[in-house]
Each structure stands twice: as C-alpha cells, then as structure tokens.
Nucleic acid binder design. Structure first.
Lengths: 210, 210
DNA sequence: TATTAGATGATAATATTTTCACAAACTTTG
DNA sequence: CAAAGTTTGTGAAAATATTATCATCTAATA
C-alpha cells in the first residue's frame, strides 16, 4: 500500500474512482481499458499503466472487474472512512462550497466553518457550525481536522494558513491567488479560478486546433 | 508572437502576471528570478527558462524590469482587451462565480448568464443578464462569446456543451466531474473540486513529508 | 479440446519538463 | 576605469510522464 506512484497518476485516481462508481451504480460488471479511456478522456495505455502501478488488477483478454477495482480504489483513496475538512471564509465562494455536497460520492465532509463576521459566528449554515476565525487553531486541534479549505481574501490567507498549520493541518486547499509557504510536510493544492480562465483563453489564442 | 511554448509554461503565465501586477502596484521597479521564485513558489531556473521562451527579457546582473515584463505579459495574455465569457447554470457555484469579480485584475468578464429556471430568466443578476438556456447557441453566436463556463449538473453538461460548440464556443471551463467530448479545435479546462480535494487527501496520506 | 479474437501487463521508445551549473554580460562601487 | 559582485540565459543532464509495441493470457465458441 506504500507504493510510490507518479504524481500525474495520483491526480487521475479520483477521476477513475468517480467513473467506476458510476459503472457500479449502473450494475456494469466489467470494463476494458479502451472503453474506460473514452469515458474519462485519457489514453488507454495511460490507464493501463496507471492501474498497473498497483499490481495486476485486470485480467488479460477480459478487462477489469468493476467491483474489484472499486473496492481497491476505496481503500487507496480513503473512501472507506469519512474525512472531515474545515472551510475558512464564508464569502460567496465559501457559501457555495458549503452548499456543495462533497459528501455525495466522495466521503469528504465539511464539518466546521470559520468566519470573521459576528453575525455568522455561532450560527449553523447548511448544517455546519460556524466558529470565530480567531479560534481556528484551537478548533482544528480539538476536532482533529487535518484538511482546510481557504476561501478568504488573499491578503490574510498566509496568516490564517500559519494558524492552521499550528493547529495541525496537513493539507490546504487554497482558492486565493497568493502562493502559500508552508512546512514541507504540509501539502497545498491551489485552485485559482482566474488563473484557469486566463490559461484557457491563452490556449485558445495560441494553440488553435490541436 | 506565435512561438510555441510548453504547456507547463503556459499554465504558469497567469500566475506570473498576477504577481507582477502586485509588484507594479507596490511601485517596485525590478525583480530577480530568485526573489520571483520565492514569491510564486517555482524554481528560479524554471522562471528564467519560462521567460526566455519569449526572448531575452531580463538584464544580466540586474534582473527583470517589472513594467517591461508586465507590458509584455499584458499582450501575451490578451489582458489589453476585455474577454467576455458566458456562465451556464446559476446554482450555488454559478452564483458565486457571478459575484466573484474576475474583472478586478484579469480583464475577463462574465457578460451573459444562462439558467433553466423561469424566475431567473430575463432578470439581471449582479449586473449580468440571465437568458433561457434554450437560447444558448443563439446568444453565444449573436454576442460572439467564445468562452463558456459550465456550472450545471453533470447529467446535462454534455448536451449543453454540444449546443455551446454549435454556437461557436472555442473554450469550455467545466466544473462538473463529467469529462466532455468536443471537437479538437475546442479547448476544455476541467475544474473538479471533489477531485482536487481527494487528490489532496491522497497526497497527505501517501506522500507524507516530502 | 483446439482455435481465435480480444485485452492486459510489461517494457521500450518518446516526449516533456525540471534542474543544474556556468560562461557571458551587466551593475555597482571604490 | 577596473575589479568585484550579481544575475541572466542556456546547453546538458536528470527526472517525469506519455505513447507504442508486443508477448502473453483469458474467454468464448465450435
């Protein structure tokens, strides 16, 4: 279970998992890498390669057993237990994420929210308790939350991030454009929407037809 | 201006632009690749390499002139004119994006929104007119919009995407977990939040300390 | 049971991206 | 103006990631 697989592969795993879930729900029992490939828009050779890092999961001349694969991914992706995460910043985006049902097919749940505004603090929004952002460190520690999502202004995110790390955070999802500096045992995932959009536009202009 | 630069580089450009904007506002005149590197968390050699694809933009023994670089990036990233985009689906996430001010420092503006609900259609939300999603193709064509953001349920996104493409869309930003199939002259950028979060959790569990 | 079509797993070949390391070129200073 | 100190730009090497190929192996069928 401690195999080191390429990052690029790791990034594709949740997508694979998602698709397999769908197949399972549709009661489809087997899948070939080429069919799989078409659905998730990844080359079939890449899929076989990705899966083979974990050992021989498929049968030659047959394909992959959906339920097998799914069980396997469940363990690999920690989908067999619930992961609680904290959400810091209840502006527009924060609110949207709060409503957004991660739990649905991902076993990830926002279990605590933080904000700076008095009228929010100590209320319950979409079933999630809202705490004062001042108590971030303390609450993370008490609730043993290791994953934190930041939807706050870029100007304050580094300070809050430092707090979170002191509270024991191991994973940060950063929606601001500020790049965070963290100890190297902490992982940051940046989701910069403006960035993505600009990249998209750049590609349209400069890589036309490819 | 038609130099083919690596994709990996292209993805970093908006981030560079953003950081340079900040420097400009702070009236900082010069920047070295190593300082730059620390701020955006990219190796300095990578930055120098990235910039060098566009020619010799820096001065040896001195660094890069902020305003020079910025002007350059403005052109490269089409920041010298406004790009209008359409937003399809005004659920939680859609609403959040509508409020979200892309325009602020990016010259990208949501100029049309689409939804299926009667009570939304023909209203103006956050200054943006909302149309019936039935008219997607027609409106995109009329308004010459080439970039479309989808924040709709995964079950309908492919159909709407087909409509958009017929309406002339060249770039799609897809917030669903469904991978879209499009003609190859159309570019898709996937932003799958569940995916990102699961990847983050995977990395925390399996790549501890690195 | 023998045969064949189909599909994986493994390996090899490419392609891409990052990093290293240093000469060349510039700035600054005395 | 010369020497000392910086910093770029880039060739070469290393690290990552993708794609192609093919020798098996399985399932199905006659």
């Amino acid at each position: 279970m401690d195999i080191k697989i390429p990052r690029a592969t790791a990034k594709r795993l949740p997508m694979y998992y998602r698709y397999l879930s769908g197949l399972h729900d549709a009661k489809i029992k087997r899948i070939s890498s080429s069919t799989f490939a078409e659905a998730v828009q990844v080359d079939s050779a890449t899929i076989r390669r990705d899966l083979s890092y974990f050992g021989a999961l498929g049968k030659r001349g047959y394909g992959y057993e959906v339920d097998n694969l799914l069980d396997f991914f469940k363990k690999i992706l920690n989908q067999d237990h619930l992961t609680n995460v904290a959400l810091v910043g209840l502006g527009n985006l924060g609110q949207a994420l709060l409503h957004f049902n991660f739990h649905k097919d991902s076993n990830v749940r926002i279990s605590a929210a933080f904000d700076i505004h008095d009228d929010m603090i100590n209320t319950v929004q979409s079933g999630v308790p809202v705490y004062d952002v001042k108590d971030l460190q303390e609450q993370l520690r008490d609730q043993q939350i290791e994953v934190v999502i930041f939807t706050v202004p870029a100007t304050v995110v580094q300070d809050l991030c430092d707090e979170a790390v002191m509270g024991g955070a191991k994973g940060i999802m950063n929606f601001t454009s500020k790049r965070l500096s963290v100890p190297k045992n902490v992982r940051v995932q940046n989701v910069d929407l403006t960035n993505e959009l600009q990249t998209l536009i750049y590609f349209i202009e400069h890589y036309e037809g490819e």
